[in-house]
Design a protein around this nucleic acid. Sequence first.
DNA 1: GAATGATATCGTTAATCGACGATAGGCAAT
DNA 2: ATTGCCTATCGTCGATTAACGATATCATTC
Lengths: 111, 111
Amino acid sequence: MAKNVNATRTCGSEAEKLSLPDVDWAEDLAKLTWALAPPARVRIVRLLLSRSSCVCGEIVDEMPLAQSTVSQHLKILKESGLVTGEVDGPRVCYCIHQPAFQKLKQLIAEL
Amino acid sequence: MAKNVNATRTCGSEAEKLSLPDVDWAEDLAKLTWALAPPARVRIVRLLLSRSSCVCGEIVDEMPLAQSTVSQHLKILKESGLVTGEVDGPRVCYCIHQPAFQKLKQLIAEL
DNA sequence: GAATGATATCGTTAATCGACGATAGGCAAT
DNA sequence: ATTGCCTATCGTCGATTAACGATATCATTC
């Protein structure tokens, strides 16, 4: 049962069943789906999509979570690329980042 | 895990799209995105979509993971509804479950 | 009724997650 | 500079995860 063949295929171009592009493709999508795995982050994204103003405090008000928790979710959403945070004086305005968002839609659609 | 959302939204004009229904909606989507959060499960789904035959053993052969791990992933994918497993003699044939799969696509599309 | 092959489950481990409170940092008025 | 608000980060905790090997279950063939 030799399952682990990673040692020789990290960079290799061997004739493997699942082509390397597919692995990358899967990781690209997984990065985005993972960002939306917890319901809280889905709700945040949905909120950002439905509102013009997207100040952090408003998001916190809408969520039954502590401010630090929401901030952490926003950080992860930013890291996934789905969201951007723009400092606006003492506040931070969060917005959907359309390129990544469209990429998510496309990756799912072409699944 | 708290659960209290009152949020008397005064922003929505005719129907506030951000209330309790949205919570359920978010959980519906999160259930599916969570199932696809690990790259391994994305790859399995992709495999099932690209192949006509979907016997468990073939999936194991394609993945650099132990049989038990793949089986566990398949179980989770079944629980999410995205995949069905049909016993076929001594083997089990896995397939994409189109209803759930289309629901995922629709939920993402209408995001 | 064995023996075999395929799949599922069990039990464990190390890592990660989501949540929180407390606290630090930044900006705008006073 | 000090105050006060808003946001980010820190440290921690409990729960969950993905991975594995070992073992149990089940269907087929002998």
